[in-house]
C-alpha cells in the first residue's frame, strides 16, 4: 500500500479551493462580457487573461504541475520541460499563422473592400 500513500497529495479542501477559483474566474469572464463592463480591446485582453489564470489554476490544483513525484526524492522536471516546449511550439504555430494570414489578408484586399475604404 506504500504505492498509494506515496501518491497522496492534496485534500478535499485543496481541490475545493481550486474548484471555487475556477468557477469564480469563469463567472468573472462571463459577466465582463454579458454586462458589457469593459469595451474594445480591454475586454478581450481581460477575458484572455482570466483564461490564462484559470489554465494556471487548473494545472496547479488539478494536474499538480511542478510538484510531481516530489515525495522525498529529487523532483522530475520532465513534465515541466515538455509543457514549456509545447507552449513554445503552440505560440509559434498560433501567432505565426495569425500573423501570416492577417498580413496576406491586408495585402490581398479584394477590390470591393478597397472601394469601400476609398469611400471612407
Amino acid at each position: 500500500m506504500t504505492l498509494i500513500r506515496q501518491e497522496e497529495k492534496g485534500t478535499v479542501k485543496f481541490y475545493l479551493l481550486g474548484f471555487i477559483l475556477c468557477i469564480a474566474l469563469t463567472l468573472a469572464a462571463y459577466f465582463l462580457v454579458a454586462k458589457e463592463l469593459l469595451s474594445g480591446m480591454t475586454v478581450i485582453l481581460a477575458i484572455l487573461g482570466l483564461g490564462v489564470i484559470q489554465l494556471a489554476v487548473q494545472l496547479i490544483f488539478f494536474m499538480h504541475l511542478g510538484s510531481e513525484y516530489a515525495d522525498g526524492r529529487p523532483k522530475h522536471h520532465w513534465n515541466m520541460l515538455v509543457f514549456f516546449f509545447m507552449i513554445m511550439v503552440l505560440v509559434i504555430i498560433v501567432f505565426g499563422s495569425l500573423w501570416i494570414m492577417y498580413n496576406l489578408n491586408y495585402r490581398e484586399m479584394p477590390p470591393m473592400d478597397m472601394s469601400e475604404q476609398m469611400e471612407k
Partner: peptide, 13 residues
C-alpha cells in the same frame, strides 16, 4: 476554457 473564451465570449462582443 479556451473554447468558451475565444469562441463564445469573444464571439458575443
Amino acid at each position: 476554457i479556451f473554447i468558451f473564451t475565444i469562441v463564445y465570449l469573444m464571439g458575443a462582443l
